[in-house]
Computed example of a mutant assay.
Amino acid sequence: MLRKNVIRRTLAAAAVLAVTAGCTAQAAVSDRPGDPKAATSASAASVAEATGTPSGAGEATPSKRPGEKPSPSATTAPEVLMASGSKSEKVRELQARLAQIGWFDDTPTGTYGPVTVASVKGFQGKRGLPATGDTDTVTWQKLLGMTKKPTSDELKGKTVNKPAAKLDARCMMGRVLCISKTTRTLSWVVDGTVRSTMDVRFGSQYTPTREGSFTVFQKSRDHVSTIYHTSMPYAMFFSGGQAVHYSSDFAARGYNGASHGCVNVRDKGAISSLFAQVHNGDKVVIYW
């Protein structure tokens, strides 16, 4: 009787070992034939069985505990809705909305070009967003919350709400062409009162428009550049060959182009009126 009990206990123990070995082998099976990790995973699985530790601990990222915030790498990046090269009515709306808050001062075209990229970057940077120049879902929602649906005139560029330029202190006395590079505007100021304001464009980084305080020393109604052989109507020279004048290129291309150092005006009617009012000796102040 005693011997039978010993045999039974021995057979039961063998059965337990066989079942355990079978579970371990199943856990170690790889879905890739000849996987070199199979041998080591069998050992890991058996330890896991014995200790209750998940198999592969220390190799895979642990599952998130309840209430634990996901790591930054686990968060989903915002979807890009519009970017350089995009062409659509949604891009036109983007440009018109940026214009409402002073970040786009060109005519909405529906084409996502360098001017739009620069405008979006400025808008993003001002609000602590990654300044990528792409309009992603976060940027778009932020813009929607700060603007209203553009009107037909705004979509056509007929109504642009540009921020007023902060006048330099040197512009507050006398007759001054007060030119801000920050807002890209020229304000005609007489004794501290702004008489008119118009859009202007400056030179490129290779032919920059000089900054400082100057005076108008020559006016030329139908001037033609002797260097570039281009028309410079209503030219008012203030520093060497640099002048304030009308630019048909600015009128056609907007801020996609640049001058050779002059201050370009794109509104022909506005510069014509200004030319009639400005005298030689009037001050010109160019500042950021």
Rank of each mutant, 00 (worst) to 15 (best):
R3M: 12
K4V: 14
V6T: 12
R8P: 03
R8E: 15
A12D: 10
A13T: 14
V16G: 05
T20K: 02
V29E: 15
R32E: 14
P36M: 00
K37S: 12
A39V: 15
S41W: 15
A42Y: 08
A42L: 05
S43C: 11
S46Q: 14
P54C: 04
S55L: 14
P62V: 11
S63Y: 08
S63T: 13
E68V: 09
A74D: 14
A77T: 12
P78S: 05
M82Q: 04
M82Y: 06
Q100I: 05
Q100R: 06
Q100T: 03
G102V: 00
T107Y: 04
P114K: 10
V115R: 03
A118K: 10
G122T: 06
F123C: 03
G125C: 04
R127Q: 11
L129E: 03
L129G: 03
L129S: 06
D134I: 01
D136L: 02
V138W: 01
Q141K: 14
Q141A: 15
K142R: 13
L155S: 04
L155R: 11
G157K: 03
K158W: 06
K158N: 13
K158E: 10
V160A: 09
K162D: 08
A164C: 04
L167H: 03
M172V: 00
L177D: 00
I179A: 03
S180G: 03
T182R: 09
T183W: 02
R184F: 00
L186V: 00
D191L: 10
T197E: 07
M198A: 09
V200G: 04
Q205M: 10
T207C: 07
P208V: 01
P208C: 05
K219G: 01
S220Y: 08
S220M: 09
D222N: 14
D222W: 08
V224E: 07
V224K: 08
T226Q: 12
F238C: 04
R253I: 09
Y255G: 05
S259N: 06
H260M: 06
D267G: 00
S273N: 12
H279E: 09
N280I: 13
N280M: 11
K283I: 07
K283V: 08
V285I: 08
I286S: 00
